[in-house]
Design a binder for these strands. Structure first.
Lengths: 249, 249
DNA sequence: CTGCGGCAAACTGTTGACAGCCTGCACTTG
DNA sequence: CAAGTGCAGGCTGTCAACAGTTTGCCGCAG
């Protein structure tokens, strides 16, 4: 045996990753990270052989990955013309907020009936972490804790809804790299978090749902007031897949 | 020229489809139809070269299509082992019902504020069509009209939510080919349709939302009472991707 | 100077082929 | 007779190459 099957290796950091994940899935993961990090901005053309060369693989896996990303809404493709990082319009962004509100409300309502003490403690710790981040004016820390909080919320709602929520969040990232978290917004947002947690802890499904929806609606409002209504951002982000532009090598 | 570009051919039934759609997208469409029609039942293994041979294409487009279907939740893949039509468990099916309820409620609420007379007329016509189908005991006719009704509902909610709803509906089809529409259920279901329409026509967003959610919840209840709670169906549909089974050609 | 037509480069779409892995059967051995 | 082992077959994962199309540029005519 080349590997001892008895002792469990907790860190999957080995080349047995290669044994379980296909190249296409790894490329997909990498491309998704590139898109969400902004390395591949919205509207950017995806050159297959260039990506293949850069990632050290053939064009086959790249094409498969792109096809998957197309289905998940991060990429749009036109035959014989190429694939482009999807541009999300302002109206689409607003709709996505509504969808996320509905999903969050559902998850909160369910969580109000099924939450374990451990889950409540976890949510409470995250709220405190965000409170501390606000006090320290640590935007990135707040951002991370906020992501965790929402993930924990959705985790209680069900696996399918969780994946849906993540996908929608990714699409939103295409419009604006990161939601602007101003100090005032942080405070307001975290107050809503606390309200959600309180309703869940009280076991009040209706109130939890309303609080969850109100929180996302608040995020939508904050988003609108800072960015979306500006025509500049609108015009910039509503750009359709433009004509191919020859790259100078 | 082999084709006159002046006169607009309303039916796109030509081989210029080949000029706009890639083989991979056509294969994806075909596979999706096969899965939803039951020609490829849940748990079925997808043999790439067999599918390629059957569809008259190479394995490349088939692989790309399968990758897309994997992202949309219809297929699961295991490296070096193959792809399988996804099996949806009973609990997942119930969660999907909840998600669809939230989406439908959202669409109804928005529609209550934005519905045009034409949209209202269309919805009313569909309700009448279903009423007639119920009177004639025409299950398939009712089924089709029901699909149209919900599509029209979601269309008013936004394009993104519509696609989401369709995807979730497809996943539900994986659990049970078609929701059993018994005469009693048809009557009950269509009464809920009428309630939705009334709330939308009245412009009452809250009532419309509640009616929309109640309708899907009713469908979930009807689904549970007829099928899901039966342990047989549960065991059959919860099957995981099983070991490869050699096919006798 | 402007509009048009042809040409060449690049890129996508598709195919066929090769290597590695898993599976299942048959044989051997205790 | 049961359990383990070697072997052949099939299938997936990946790659390299070919054909078709689109695109951008250059030259030419008006």
């Amino acid at each position: 045996m080349e590997e001892d099957p008895i002792q469990p290796e907790s860190p999957p950091t080995a080349l047995d990753i290669v044994r379980t994940r296909s190249l296409a899935s790894l490329v997909s993961q990498e491309l998704e990270a590139m898109i969400l990090s902004g390395a591949l901005p919205a509207g950017e053309r995806l050159n297959e052989q260039q990506l293949a060369l850069r990632l050290g693989v053939s064009r086959g896996p790249v094409r498969e990955a792109v096809r998957g990303l197309e289905r998940s809404g991060l990429v749009v493709s036109v035959r014989n013309q190429g694939s482009y990082v999807r541009s999300v319009s302002a109206t689409e962004a607003l709709e996505i907020y509504d969808l996320r509100a509905a999903l969050t409300g559902l998850a909160c309502a369910r969580l109000a009936g099924t939450a374990t003490p451990a889950q409540l403690a976890e949510l409470g710790a995250l709220v405190q972490r965000m409170e501390a981040a606000w006090a320290a004016d640590a935007a990135t820390e707040y951002y991370a804790a906020n992501l965790d909080f929402h993930a924990a919320l959705l985790q209680g709602g069900g696996p399918r809804g969780q994946r849906l929520y993540e996908d929608l969040g990714n699409e939103l990232h295409l419009f604006r790299r990161r939601a602007l978290v101003e100090p005032q917004n942080m405070r307001e947002s975290n107050a809503e978090h606390a309200a959600i947690l309180a309703a869940i802890a009280a076991g009040d499904a209706l109130a939890a749902r309303a609080a969850g929806e109100a929180h996302i609606a608040g995020g939508k409002r904050r988003f609108q007031s800072t960015d979306a209504s500006r025509p500049a951002a609108l015009a910039q982000n509503a750009a359709s897949p433009r004509r191919r532009t020859r790259r100078s090598a």
